[in-house]
Design a protein around this nucleic acid. Structure first.
Lengths: 349, 349
DNA sequence: TGACAAAATTGGAACGTTCCAATTATCTAA
DNA sequence: TTAGATAATTGGAACGTTCCAATTTTGTCA
């Protein structure tokens, strides 16, 4: 049952037309007569024909494979999972299908999967590069004319489009908000210092401090893995300082959650005894307790925009690199203490 | 630059051999002489040749496309993201590449993406079916001889392999554990009652109660969306009962986190004032505060096993359906109050 | 009715690979 | 040296589709 695959020739034969006609109805060409089209479509349904995109793609000079690749550096981070969902949404409704691969920050794996995707003839690639990716890694890809959109992280020197969030402005706004609430010692917690994203955010932190006439204390910047566990470690170290911070901006939401955990372990109540702001606005940020004040980057929306940009380039044929920085906004919730300000409440008593 | 694609013919020409020979070295055939192989490989590197799997696949009678499909019902749930990562790991190292699609519980979307994947000639499919999927949806897929492995959820009547976790035993163990800690009123919170998974877990709950000689109270079973928000809603309702529960087993970890949030909103301390057990053991379960006691199903491992099963069937040529239930274990952490038992601590004072 | 245009259909070549059968080069042993 | 075996190479057909140029059918109008 279902052993031999049915081809256009079979359809043509059964419908009493030529394979060319069948091909035309498959592509919904206006050249074919309504009644023939109906007949052919009926036969297609009856015989359970499935279109062979491989064969079609082979013939079509340009590689319109209807496959786009998306490779992310850490799919277990829900930020990237949501990004992938966003990409999937627009890509699916454009009739494409996505190859998704996870590199787990390994450039070797990244090289392998990109090579594999090329062999399959992807018509474009959305890439959140693994740490340490350099322009040379993307060289031959772009040379072959395949549009590439970098997301989240940029690769300096690579002639590809990019879509990153406004890390500088986001962190600046977060720090200003905390300063506005009266905090003087604000820590910057988490993240690896050898990444561009880290440095952009750190610069935003620095600039905001200077805007608000606050001193920059190097010991208040403590880096760590950009994960929940990293957040626990970072706040741990920050609390050991002789002069403790009273608030923290975190590299991302995962770190911020870890910071909250660590605070509780020290019998400190995040949002009341210590203000915490995250970055990303992952889906759990709004339901967590306390709800996390954070910089919303809307990962799903970012995925959608990246996919749209890529599709635009694919359709345009030629892809001139454009760099988009996606704006970002502060979402004030409980964890920064602004909503239910304990000091204020106490002063009212 | 890189306009015309380079083909085996170009390689053959440049290396002074025939295309057949080039093809042989591409497949690492032992038939070709060492020195020719080296020469050809050198030319391949020089010209920047990229293998065209589409063309190869077209010729190869059987569809060894080196593509496997994976479609999940909710990628934003980190359980499925991790599952996908597990699949990706084994699939990648077997030289395959994965099509990943998210259906967001829509059977229509599911039908579309599966159709699309077939057109691309996937050699196998791993499917976590959307709610409401029935055997007919998979009929033509299996008829065409493409191996399918269902994960997480089964589709009754479909002749495909499946890999599900032992929902019954897991929930039974959770309830027994709570009963062993002295709880009499144990709630079952979250999940949609029209799913098989829900009913298996509920049955485990029922059986454990009866094993432990505890009464079954229908009002202690409160269903909700299997999400964090659903968990908040469920505990909310459970706390409104005239006779409150003192502990809860939750449909999954997301619900359990929501339950913890809801408890805190009522000034109850999860793990101390109320025992909570989750299901899944997602990655955040161990770092959350309190660390979540849960039934570990190791989603990544499940993904790996599903992929291995699928690859086995692909290689075997013929796929006879096997149903695997993957065993599951209780991981005791803080949220059930076993580790730091407040009552016990108090009695020691 | 014939001439012409427009609409619809069609056969064959081509895409880049693999497979098969056939050919050529190289080795072995008497 | 040569027959026979073995190793290495090769040309052409095939996979399922699309495209092109060419052909056939249908329609229009004088």
């Amino acid at each position: 049952m279902g052993k031999e695959r049915v081809t256009v020739i079979d359809i043509a034969h059964a419908a009493g037309v030529s394979k060319s006609t069948v091909s035309l109805v498959l592509q919904a060409s206006p050249l074919v007569n309504e009644v023939t089209r109906a007949k052919v479509n009926a036969v297609i349904r009856d015989l359970g024909y499935v279109y062979n995109r491989g064969a079609a793609n082979l013939r079509q000079s340009n590689s319109k494979s209807k496959i786009i690749g998306i490779v992310v550096n850490d799919l277990t981070n829900s930020f990237f999972a949501e990004l992938a969902v966003g990409v999937d949404m627009v890509v699916q409704s454009a009739g494409y299908v996505q190859f998704l691969a996870n590199t787990a920050e390994s450039v070797d794996r990244q090289r392998e999967v990109i090579a594999s995707m090329r062999e399959h003839g992807i018509s474009g690639l959305i890439l959140s590069p693994a740490r340490g990716t350099d322009a040379a890694d993307l060289k031959s890809l772009v040379a072959s004319g395949i549009p590439v959109v970098n997301v989240v992280r940029q690769v300096s020197g690579a002639k590809v489009s990019s879509l990153v969030s406004d890390n500088h402005a986001g962190m600046r706004d977060a720090v200003r908000h905390l300063a506005g609430l009266g905090h003087h010692r604000i820590a910057f917690l988490g993240g690896f210092p050898d990444t561009a994203v880290f440095n952009e955010r750190l610069q935003g932190y620095r600039d905001a401090l200077s805007d608000m006439d606050l001193a920059m204390h190097d010991e208040l910047v403590v880096s760590s893995a950009p994960s929940r566990a990293g957040g626990v470690a970072a706040i741990e170290r920050a609390l050991m300082l002789r002069e403790r911070p009273t608030a923290a901006v975190c590299f991302n939401d995962a770190v911020a959650f870890g910071v909250c955990d660590g605070l509780r372990a020290h019998r400190l109540d995040p949002g009341e005894d210590f203000a915490v702001i995250g970055f990303d606005d992952v889906i759990e940020a709004q339901t967590a307790v306390p709800a996390l004040t954070t910089i919303s980057v809307d990962p799903q929306g970012m995925g959608r925009r990246a996919a749209q940009l890529l599709l635009k380039q694919i359709n345009a044929g030629r892809a001139d690199a454009e760099a988009i920085v996606s704006s970002v906004r502060l979402v004030v919730r409980q964890s920064c203490g602004a909503a239910i300000d304990k000091r204020e409440r106490l002063s009212l008593l």
